[in-house]
Design a protein around this nucleic acid. Structure first.
Lengths: 325, 325
DNA sequence: AACCTGTGTGAAACCGTTCTCATATACATC
DNA sequence: GATGTATATGAGAACGGTTTCACACAGGTT
């Protein structure tokens, strides 16, 4: 069922059918004939053929490290809402946090012409990433990282962690930090530095630092190590809510009272934060909005909307709940 | 940079370049020349043109009600792993749980020829869904619903809820149920029926039934209503972990001890279940595996693998934790 | 009458591939 | 020497649309 069939059935040329479908000049009479034939046949033009001729795919490539993560899923929800609203579909590329895969997808999407634009949510940006980005032939937005001179939306984990550390240090004297690898720019490096900055400002030497990954279990284990080496810890600042949730479970199991004996803080306000007992003092990132914002910036790059922002630093909110004094 | 340029530069016809790229007959000598030119130019064939010619997109459409949900995100992770491994990309369609949008995407994807196959994760299947499915021109798998005569992967929420209700009723005498709308086949209707069946078998009249949606907050509110009308409730069976988490928070706030005064059960083993206090008795659904399984079934439909299963009922595991006696 | 101008139309080129088919060469077999 | 077979190649036709271009016809202006 192609455009030629329709044209023949309606007794017109295929150019006229094409014009009918694309707001061109078509006489009342032929338009009706074409409309009728299309109604009968249920004809829909081939996306592939249109794309080949016009160069427009109406697809945006979204490269993410892991879909199976609350913050990223919320981000994608925001992306999806705005992009779908503008008539774009999302081609999802899951990289399992492998830097090489990210770069590969960047090249693949761009060179094969399979997308009109790209949103990259990477946890770290190597020089290879940057090189790949700069050689892209389609507009793109970086999500979750700051990169000067490129469209990006990022979180201010540094100040978020500073604010929350400040809060905790009002009554905490022997703080420890459970973070993730410093190679991660946001949740890793930035929040770590935020913690250290506040400690230094208050003239407090951190008791210890442990490293976890993004799982609840690793938060539990890191907390266990911490308690073993430093039973006198009175404040545990965690780089993510999941780590903090693991820490809370661990502390409870070992009989420590929260926040009386030990304070715990998280970052990211996942659902967990509201549900753990005691509820978690944390910082809320507007993940869904960040996705929506990134989408809007990309639409700008695609010439669909006017959005002058080149860089957007997302705001955050401090939630002082019951895991701190 | 197209195949003609490459052909000219290498001094061969474009057919030969095409053969070089697709394992056809090419002499050693010309192959080397072509390889060199491609290396220099960084040429990558246009996906669009290949697709138009071959009819293969190497893309699978994945229609989901909401990406921003732990269970669905895990499912998509499973899909992604298997599909990417087989060389397929994922075109994501978020329907915000609007039945019409689901049907629209089904038609759109199929008719425009933008995907080779479709995975549909719908919460309910109307006759319109079924009609749309049956008129598809590409293979498809239904995820999360059972539909006789169609490839599908589903969860046995009925027996899962029966098992967990049975467990709770060992010591509970005045049970209530917090569910979602019965229009939802799995989490709604099936788990509701499972609960009722066990009550009936034990000759127990359920104390009350409340309805929530999929949010933690709605679980909290439903629990609040329940406590107001039936302060003597001693067992609350919830259709999802998020509802249960909300109920736990509510009960705690109202000073009820769990499980001594009131037992609570969930379903779905989200991260929440391990973190709420007390930890939640629930059933673990293998969401990620279900995605992987659905992907394999689709690959079968695409002729890529042999997977004779037409219908897969996912197994589950009962986790008796501390929210039941 | 000659000349625009706006509207409507179809033929044909084009987008970048794959694929069929005709053909060519080299070598072995009868 | 004729025939068969495996390897290698290019010309040209698809694939299904959009877009350019030339042209026709209506009506209004010089």
């Amino acid at each position: 069922m192609d455009i030629n069939t329709i044209a023949t059935m309606a007794g017109v040329s295929r150019a006229t059918v094409s014009r009918y479908l694309n707001d061109g000049y078509v006489s009342e009479e032929k338009a009706e004939r074409i409309a009728e034939v299309i109604r009968q046949t249920g004809y829909v033009p081939s996306r592939q053929a249109q794309t080949l001729r016009t160069g427009k795919t109406d697809v945006v490539g979204v490269i993410i490290p892991k879909i199976n993560s609350a913050s990223i899923a919320r981000t994608v929800a925001g992306l999806s809402e705005v992009l779908n609203g503008a008539g774009y579909q999302i081609l999802l590329a899951n990289t399992s946090n492998v830097a090489k895969t990210e770069v590969d997808y960047l090249r693949l999407f761009s060179r094969t012409g399979s997308v009109d634009g790209i949103i990259l949510s990477a946890t770290m940006l190597t020089h290879k990433h940057i090189a790949a980005l700069e050689s892209l032939t389609v507009p793109y937005v970086i999500l979750g990282q700051r990169l000067e001179g490129h469209r990006c939306v990022f979180y201010d984990d540094y100040h978020a962690e500073r604010d929350i550390t400040l809060l905790a240090l009002r009554s905490g004297e022997r703080p420890a930090f459970i973070g993730v690898t410093d190679e991660e720019a946001a949740a890793g490096h930035a929040s770590h530095q935020g913690f250290l900055a506040d400690c230094q400002e208050r003239g407090i030497e951190p008791l210890a630092e442990e490293q976890a990954d993004f799982s609840i279990e690793s938060g539990y284990l890191a907390c266990e190590r911490l308690l073993e080496d430093h039973p006198d810890v009175d404040t545990i600042v965690c780089a993510t809510d999941r780590i903090a949730a693991g820490a809370v479970v661990c502390l409870r199991e070992y009989g420590h009272r929260i926040p009386e004996d030990v304070q715990v803080t998280g970052l990211g306000d996942s659902d967990l934060a509201k549900v753990v007992s005691p509820t978690l003092t944390t910082v809320n990132h507007h993940y869904k909005s960040s996705g929506a914002e990134a989408a809007r910036m990309l639409l700008d790059g695609l010439g669909k909307v006017q959005d002058s922002a080149q860089q957007v630093c997302m705001t955050y909110e401090l939630y002082a709940r019951n895991s701190t004094r």
